[in-house]
Design a protein around this nucleic acid. Sequence first.
RNA 1: CCUCGAGUGGC
Length: 247
Amino acid sequence: HRIFNVILAALKKERRWEDIREVLDEMGAVGGRCAPDRATLVIAMSAYADCARPREARVLLDAMGSMGFGRDRRAYTSMVKAYVNAGQTGAAVQFVSEMESVGLSADLHLWTLLVSMYGRAGALVDAELALEQMRASGYPPNVIAYGALLNGCSRAGNAQEARRVFEDMRARGVTPDQRCFRSLMLAYAREGLSAEVERVWAEMLTTGLSPNRAMYTVLLRAYCKANRIREAKAAYSTMLREGHSCD
RNA sequence: CCUCGAGUGGC
């Protein structure tokens, strides 16, 4: 089954969800040492999640459940992610309560996914609530969870809140990475506050992080939105000089 | 790390 699992992992990487069923059927048909195991379920579920196929994921989860492999948090988290990626936020939330009713509580990864789900949906209040519930459940939010919340602040167009969250994160000893800085800058850029973006940029440099193309894209956006074309051109030149190609 | 789960940019 390890060989089949490697094949499934490759299909996941290539987003070929339509071929997954065939591999699973083959494993079942050969049986014995080739029969699906717990890892098979986890890999296939995450593949369906990445491909936004909640229907196929649900069928697989139920089938594996009757084979005794069902109670795996990772499989459940992938189920939620499948709903999220398919845009079915309501179904995702409902599934989480189903999960809790069978005795599987949310862990670090599921909480992080929920924060990002609400953030992506622009439901900033719910995202912040999820972050606090996460903390209260014994999972102190890490840089990834904070990054998801910052992304939510940015999408909600709330730069002030993004700054508050950013400072809260630091006060709790979580060191912001490039993505956190990028989300904070993007929040300011969306409001056309190019001077604030420059300030964050400078802050980022003092922490030793080096700007990448994603950050230059945000900086350019801020300058363009503020009609600071001269600065935009200068930043673009600097970007190329530092070896970041244009995409 | 050793087959497997979390935040990824513009509109």
